[in-house]
């Protein structure tokens, strides 16, 4: 009986992950090395052409644009999220819980609907332009929708909580005595920030960065709703290769590239976490 329970609880999750995570991942890697086929999706021979095609200027352009937009969205999330997380983590208890709850509440609305809400704000005759006119602006209405700016705004809007929550977690744990000690030893505001706060909160910054940057590459619907029918993100590229162009090997190659990139980011994350821990451990 003991063994039955032990085997069942361990085996169930192991089996699920093996069948629905490992096996499909291997299939995608295999697909990315195969040749496109019109009726069976894929066929032999094995090839690396799909990866080579990612360097084709047409697709390389999408990759570079997508990385740029995702990076910009990540930096904006960080610039907005860091001071906010700091204030929340340092607020008194009832306020802290209320503010955290307010960050989470928008999640209850499907993110596609939230992207659509951003569209309502940015449209030519939308809320933002109406507000500008009401304030006395009399020029042409701003063309904000269907621009890369709108896509970045949508990405920031949908992903901001993913930056705030990990930042909050590290800032909340930051021992205020360390800051007092730094001040006692003569460190100014800037020095305290650069030499104490930043290194200690780096794991949160990297965690938030990973949680914003990676999804930002893939959220094709944000780009579709706010950026018009252009391939702006890697996600659009993958989606269109799989569902429109039916070129699975090429779409799979783009997806494997994303996973490799994720691996590199995770490695950077664990390295930064390790370094932060070492620093605390130093005498």
């Amino acid at each position: 009986m003991q063994h039955v329970f032990r085997r069942a609880s361990t085996g169930l999750i192991a089996l699920w992950l093996a069948v629905f995570v490992l096996l499909p991942t291997l299939m995608v890697v295999a697909t990315s090395l195969l040749t496109r086929h019109d009726s069976h999706f894929v066929s032999l021979p094995l090839t690396l052409d799909n990866y080579a095609r990612l360097f084709d200027p047409l697709y390389a352009g999408v990759l570079v644009d997508s990385f740029g937009l995702a990076a910009l969205a990540t930096v904006l999330c960080l610039l907005v999220g860091y001071p906010f997380a700091w204030i929340v983590a340092r607020a008194r208890a009832p306020w802290r819980h209320l503010l955290l709850l307010l960050v989470i509440v928008p999640f209850w609305t499907n993110s596609l609907i939230r992207a659509y809400a951003v569209k309502l704000v940015l449209a030519t005759n939308g809320a933002l332009n109406s507000a500008l006119f009401a304030l006395g602006y009399s020029g042409e209405p701003l063309q904000l929708l269907y621009t890369p700016f709108a896509v970045v705004a949508g990405l920031v809007y949908v992903l901001l909580p993913f930056m705030i929550l990990p930042l909050y977690a590290v800032i909340e744990k930051l021992d205020p005595r360390l800051l007092e000690a730094a001040a006692d030893l003569g460190a100014g505001r800037l020095q305290r920030f650069v030499r104490v706060i930043l290194p200690l909160t780096l794991p949160g910054i990297v965690a938030g960065g990973v949680l914003v940057f990676l999804p930002a590459l893939g959220l094709f619907y944000v780009s579709d709703v706010l950026g018009g029918a252009k391939d702006l993100l890697v996600g659009n590229l993958v989606k269109n290769q799989f569902l429109v162009a039916r070129d699975w090997p090429f779409g799979a190659a783009a997806s494997v590239t994303l996973v490799v990139l994720m691996g590199l980011l995770l490695w950077a994350w664990s390295a930064s976490a390790r370094r932060a821990n070492q620093r605390i451990g130093e005498p």
Binding site: F20, V21, L23, P24, M27, V28, L214, G218, V238, S255
Partner: peptide, 26 residues
């Protein structure tokens, strides 16, 4: 097992989506 869970936690949805689509089709 726990490593795989953390990787899965961070995997972009689109990567998971196409791998499952491959599985279901195969």
């Amino acid at each position: 097992l726990s490593g795989l869970l953390y990787v899965l936690l961070l995997t972009p949805d689109i990567v998971l989506a196409i791998s499952l689509l491959c599985l279901f089709v195969v």
